[in-house]
């Protein structure tokens, strides 16, 4: 038993959960799958006085596809549920590509997609997907719902725009463009472990093979997930070919200043980010015309 003592709450309804957070605010943490919170408490990096376990709150485990193709994922949808979801495979191909990179199956069966976003670990995949797709976060409290744009959500290491009394109840990913292709790739010491650096990329490519939109997001490269807009600008309007991809990769390596730690130096991570950009964009381009 490694976590410090806490008062445990297991609300049966969302209203009950929100009331608990209104009451205990800064002293409380929301527990969904627990795959980040439990080890954090075990390492005593987090010591909430109250833990609000939303695991029994009904209706939060739905994956909803809107009539326009936008996909909304509820707070209790587990990674493995998203991994196996035909709706995700069809309407959110980037999420489907991402899921196999998220940890190991025995963690994916418990950990939640939305919980990973709320936890905002810079080395996790989903925050980068949020940035690359410009997803919208829905935060709920006793004051009501509010939406938070992707670019406003991640504020720092494990820090987001969520207030202490809010639950991230769902995340909505905009409809996937018909002519978009994407790729996810990363380097980790062991597949499924936290990546040294990871790449999440999306390209929209016109019939003439010209890139009309590009999103390049990275994990493990800063204190939050980040996009490299200067490299995206290189791709915008350029032909989807190796030359463009190499130019973008060079900009990525130059722009990013990943932190140095025992697993890899800043210089190595910069190099990896460029290499992964080139590989990822080539892999995405191989999908042009392949699906939809």
């Amino acid at each position: 038993m490694k976590a410090p003592p806490f008062i445990y709450h297991r609300p049966e309804t969302l209203d009950e959960a929100l009331a608990l957070l209104t009451e205990h605010g800064d002293d409380a943490k929301v527990l969904a799958g627990g795959q980040s919170l439990i080890p954090l408490m075990g390492l005593r990096m987090g010591r909430p006085a109250h833990v609000v376990d939303i695991g029994r709150v009904p209706k939060l485990d739905a994956i909803h596809v809107d009539s326009d193709g936008a996909v909304t994922i509820g707070a209790l949808v587990r990674h493995e549920q998203a991994n196996k979801s035909p709706a995700i495979a069809e309407h959110a191909p980037l999420i489907a590509q991402t899921m196999p990179w998220v940890a190991h199956r025995a963690i994916r069966t418990r950990g939640t997609v939305v919980g990973s976003i709320a936890h905002a670990d810079p080395a996790a995949e989903m925050p980068a997907v949020v940035l690359a797709t410009q997803a919208t976060m829905t935060a709920t409290s006793t004051r009501g719902d509010r939406t938070i744009a992707a670019n406003d959500f991640f504020e720092g290491y494990l820090d987001t725009a969520l207030e202490a009394d809010e639950i991230l109840t769902s995340v909505t990913f905009p409809a996937w463009p018909a002519n978009a292709v994407s790729a996810v790739t990363e380097v980790a010491r062991r597949h499924g472990d936290y990546a040294l650096v990871g790449f999440v990329g999306k390209l929209v490519v016109g019939d003439d093979n010209v890139i009309t939109d590009a999103a390049l997001a990275f994990l493990g490269a800063a204190s939050t997930a980040v996009r490299v807009t200067a490299a995206e600008a290189v791709l915008q309007g350029a032909p989807a070919n190796d030359e463009s991809f190499a130019a973008a990769a060079e900009v990525v390596s130059a722009e990013l200043e990943p932190p140095s730690d025992i697993h890899g130096s800043t210089a190595y991570r910069k190099h990896l980010a460029g290499t992964l950009t080139l590989r990822g964009l080539q892999s995405a381009a191989n999908r042009i015309g392949a699906s939809a």
């Binding site: 445990y8 080890p39 075990g42 025995a106 963690i107 472990d193």
Partner: peptide, 23 residues
């Protein structure tokens, strides 16, 4: 005891899970 080694893996309702990463 923090989710890295997998030695504590059990099946919960038929699905594998790390028993050290669950209350």
């Amino acid at each position: 005891e923090h989710g890295v080694c997998g030695a504590c893996t059990v099946l919960i309702d038929g699905e594998p899970a790390r028993s050290c990463l669950m209350l």
